[in-house]
């Protein structure tokens, strides 16, 4: 492992993506280092979700390459399922499996993809549940949980197999305001424990707190990237300035 520490966990080079005739990603280059938290911001439709989906191979690319720990995952010869198993994903809508208990949701991939035996997988699942403060919900079904609890379980499910990279797509935007905090706190904790994360969010105050690097996307291009202080306090590009000032006008709290 130690010989690879300098290699980025994720390297996206020149990625293009079209839906029909509309170009959604127009040449994206990103590197995410180990233990780094990269936050994608940008207007609705700027391509944040699409970028995250291409990285998880839920969408193909039309040009460019994506490397996970140096492996070209856009090579059509790779086994997409194996790649996806190395990446954890949490979506905006919590997408837990309603027919499985909380614990079974968390251990599904461990047991069926990684072939870990039941006892080990469940012990580890319970350990995770304790970490997210939902130990007593192990045998509950997802629809008995609040939105915030469901989203925390979704995060636990994504990290249960110790993925090399975690992708989070607006994981708080479907939540009531008072539930956002508990989910974001958990993400903060993941950062503390050294996870490598690329996430899209509209929570600017959170982005400022947790991000090592903020990337501003507009119409499928990276307009500006840098540490949060720079992007939020001293943006260089006029487009970034416009986006941030509009956002501040819309919600003065942020």
């Amino acid at each position: 492992m130690s010989e690879h520490t300098s290699r980025p966990v994720l390297r996206v080079t020149g990625v293009h993506k079209k839906f029909g005739d509309t170009a959604v990603l127009k040449g994206i280059d990103i590197e995410v280092a180990r233990h780094e938290v990269v936050v994608l911001i940008g207007a609705s439709g700027s391509g944040k979700s699409t970028l995250l989906k291409t990285v998880n191979l839920l969408e193909g690319v039309d040009d460019g390459q994506i490397f996970l720990q140096g492996d070209d995952i856009t090579d059509p010869r790779v086994n997409a399922d194996r790649i996806r198993a190395r990446i954890g994903v949490v979506f905006q809508h919590y997408n837990l499996f309603p027919h499985l208990s909380v614990l079974k949701n968390i251990t599904l991939a461990s047991r069926n993809v990684f072939k870990i035996d039941k006892a080990t997988a469940e012990a580890r699942g319970r350990e995770l549940l304790r970490r997210i403060g939902l130990e007593e919900k192990a045998t509950e079904y997802p629809d008995r949980l609040s939105g915030g609890q469901q989203q925390r379980v979704a995060i636990a499910r994504a990290i249960a197999t110790e993925p090399e990279l975690l992708l989070l797509d607006e994981i708080t935007s479907a939540l009531d305001p008072q539930l956002v905090g508990e989910v974001l706190d958990l993400v903060g904790e993941l950062k503390q424990s050294g996870s490598t994360i690329m996430m899209a969010t509209h929570e600017m105050s959170f982005a400022r707190r947790v991000a090592d690097r903020v990337i501003f996307l507009s119409q499928g291009r990276i307009v500006e990237a840098g540490p949060p202080e720079q992007i939020f306090d001293d943006p260089q590009q006029p487009e970034t300035k416009t986006f941030l000032s509009r956002l501040r006008a819309a919600e003065p709290g942020a």
């Binding site: 998880n56 839920l58 399922d81 194996r82 996806r84 198993a85 190395r86 990446i87 994903v89 979506f91 997408n95 837990l96 499996f97 599904l108 991939a109 069926n112 993809v113 499910r157 994504a158 197999t161």
Partner: peptide, 9 residues
């Protein structure tokens, strides 16, 4: 999609 993203075939 959620299942596939966990690596299930």
């Amino acid at each position: 999609m959620a299942a596939r993203s966990l690596g299930l075939g």
